[in-house]
Amino acid sequence: MLLLDVMQAGGGFILIEDTVQCSGRGLLGCFINAALKRGEDVHVLGFESPETEVCAGLDSSCVQRLHFHKGFPDPLGWTRRSSFTVERFASQHITQLIKDTQHAKASVLVADSLSMVLRHHDPVVFCQTLQELRKGGVIKTIIGLLHSDLHQQGIVGIVCHLASTVISVAPADNERHSVAKTTRRTKSGKVMQEEEYFSVSEDATLSVQAKPRQPGHAQKERGVSEADPTSNLTFNLRLSEEERKAKEKVALPFVFSQEKKSALLKPTPGSGRIVYEPDANDDFDEEDPDDDLDV
């Protein structure tokens, strides 16, 4: 199960991509719960959800390692009711925020809405900030929720390109489940992709099962594999049995028969000698062999 492997391993930049048709907030809670159970400190930038909603269902014995930085309900800082605003989404502010935490170590950074940040930041600056946070050393894992239907597809594609893992959620035919399409890129450049059904329980536990193949799709693939690509050609690419035997009997021009090899390799008397018989018109002076040369 690729989705479970990504959640249990952590590391890198994990992007959860959702739409108004299917929310990824429950899946984000599962990733937070899994990081806390691994003993990691989790810093949540809460722009769209209050702390009570984020902590709902999490393991109570691990909640003390969760540090919530309040961006809700004033993410833009208009009424000064938030401790962390969209404007402060910069590598130096976030790094210092984590370092100021007691017993700070390599932590997990969670943004419950990258869309809120992206709508109020230049996309280039936003991507540079993510790159700096990934390479800063203070943050081990970045997990962000992006509402893809709020942005142009080109911008969504750029953010997905930065992520080491992209999880796109969509509704399923079964109301109890949703579909997650997970694309993971390893450091070696290998790309793994899988579609799975998942459901989230009240205690932020993730249940995953493989998505079965549709019978019609499998039948279509089988029909394509059995199709003959040479059936509509105006010429024949295959030989009959008689044509094949006749072809095998034809001697190739660059292949010598055994008889021809023996004739060529058999030595004959006088072979390799050069015999010169002087002509009557030859004027050869033994005393001056170069007399005929105009020098």
Rank of each mutant, 00 (worst) to 15 (best):
D100W: 11
T101S: 12
T101L: 08
H103E: 07
H103I: 02
K105G: 06
K105L: 05
K105I: 02
A106E: 07
A106M: 02
S107N: 08
V108H: 06
V108Y: 04
L109S: 04
L109P: 02
D112S: 12
D112F: 13
S113R: 04
S113N: 03
S115H: 01
S115Q: 01
S115T: 12
M116W: 04
M116T: 15
M116V: 14
V117Y: 03
V117P: 06
L118F: 04
L118M: 06
H120T: 00
H120Q: 04
H121E: 01
D122A: 12
D122V: 12
V125R: 15
F126K: 14
F126C: 07
C127H: 14
Q128W: 02
T129Y: 05
T129K: 00
L130G: 05
Q131F: 10
L133A: 10
L133G: 05
K135D: 01
G136H: 09
G137R: 10
V138M: 10
V138S: 12
I139L: 06
K140P: 07
K140G: 13
K140E: 13
T141M: 03
I142F: 13
I142Y: 11
I143E: 03
I143N: 01
G144E: 10
L145T: 14
L145I: 14
L145F: 13
L146A: 02
L146F: 06
H147M: 08
H147A: 14
S148Y: 02
S148C: 05
S148F: 00
S148E: 03
S148H: 03
D149V: 12
D149W: 11
L150W: 02
L150M: 04
H151P: 05
H151R: 05
Q152I: 00
Q152R: 06
Q153C: 05
Q153S: 09
Q153D: 10
G154F: 05
G154Q: 11
I155Q: 01
V156A: 01
V156G: 00
G157P: 01
G157T: 08
I158C: 10
A163K: 09
A163P: 04
S164Y: 02
S164W: 00
S164E: 10
T165S: 12
T165C: 10
V166E: 04
V166G: 02
I167H: 09
I167V: 13
I167N: 10
V169M: 01
V169G: 00
A170C: 02
A170M: 08
P171T: 08
A172V: 09
A172C: 11
D173R: 11
D173Q: 14
N174L: 06
N174T: 09
N174V: 06
R176I: 02
R176F: 04
R176N: 06
H177M: 01
S178R: 10
S178D: 01
S178G: 01
V179Q: 08
K181H: 13
K181T: 08
K181I: 10
K181D: 07
T182R: 07
T183G: 07
R184K: 07
R184W: 09
R185G: 12
T186G: 15
T186W: 07
T186K: 15
T186A: 15
K187I: 08
S188A: 15
S188K: 14
S188H: 09
S188C: 11
S188F: 08
S188N: 13
K190M: 14
K190Y: 09
V191A: 05
M192T: 13
E195A: 14
E196C: 11
Y197K: 03
Y197M: 05
F198V: 03
V200P: 06
V200M: 11
E202G: 03
E202W: 03
A204Q: 13
A204M: 08
T205C: 12
T205L: 15
